[in-house]
């Protein structure tokens, strides 16, 4: 494990960390000479690949694969953008200045986001990342928050509510356990209280990408489009 043993006291959380893939790098788009469109297409390609990795990771969250296929789909369709934004917040945490770190080689500042048609999203994401930056998230917290974001669906059609509830309870317990082992009794609650802002920001992100696709005809990969359409 790349993480010090003393930092990982909780089996479920250490499993979440170990099954995470290495951070993806952006592949520079070269299909256009328009710089801001190139940035946007590069970002969309990165999101599409991250989504693929996220789906693979979700299947390894203890309890997830035991859910019905319908519920697995509902949870992912509802929480995928939230989970991806936790990743952005985590990567941005160590960055200085006003950048958003989508990948090690894809750091966008306000002007770049505005040029790409993502001015609103930039503001919303800076607000979210500043909140997590102030909390100084640990790797364990970022991983469990991602899993919680996936589990915390408000999907109206849940096939088996009891199983989904048990899945949520397991993650909640792991977070509580982890924080009490660090003698941080308030952090679990604080992290859960960040979920409304996370969802609100994810909704804005979904709207932004759909708007770009529908109004500016920005081409999107099939998986990304399918997941955006599910919203």
């Amino acid at each position: 494990s790349p993480f010090p043993a003393h930092a990982v006291r909780n089996k479920l959380i250490s499993h979440l960390l170990l099954t995470e893939s290495a951070p993806l790098a952006a592949n520079q788009d070269d299909s256009t000479n328009d710089g801001s469109l190139r940035t946007l297409l590069t970002l969309c390609d990165l999101l599409n690949r991250e989504l693929l990795v996220l789906i693979g990771w979700a299947k390894q969250i203890p309890g997830f694969s035991g859910l019905s296929l319908v519920d697995q789909m509902s949870l992912l369709q509802s929480g995928w953008m939230e989970a991806l934004l936790v990743g952005v917040a985590w990567r941005t945490q160590g960055a200085s200045g006003e950048e958003l770190v989508f990948a090690g080689n894809l750091r966008l500042d306000k002007a770049q986001c505005r040029a790409a048609g993502l001015a609103d999203l930039y503001e919303a994401l800076r607000h979210l990342t500043a909140k997590y930056q102030a909390m100084n998230l640990s790797a364990e917290e970022a991983a469990v928050l991602k899993a919680v974001a996936l589990a915390n669906s408000d999907a109206s059609l849940v096939d088996c509510p009891d199983s989904v509830q048990r899945f949520q309870d397991g993650l909640h317990e792991a977070l509580q356990d982890y924080e009490s082992s660090r003698r941080e009794q308030h952090r679990a609650g604080r992290l859960l209280m960040s979920l409304p802002l996370l969802r609100q920001t994810a909704d804005r992100a979904v709207e932004a990408f759909l708007r770009l696709h529908r109004h500016r005809r920005v081409p999107l990969h099939k998986l990304l489009l399918e997941m955006l359409d599910a919203k």
Binding site: K222, E226, D229, A230
Partner: peptide, 20 residues
């Protein structure tokens, strides 16, 4: 589930290649 074909395929652990 036709509308959510790719996600469905990915979750089913399909061995056939998925067109993304």
């Amino acid at each position: 589930k036709e509308k959510h074909k790719i996600l469905h395929q990915l979750l089913q652990n399909s061995t056939s290649p998925v067109d993304l």
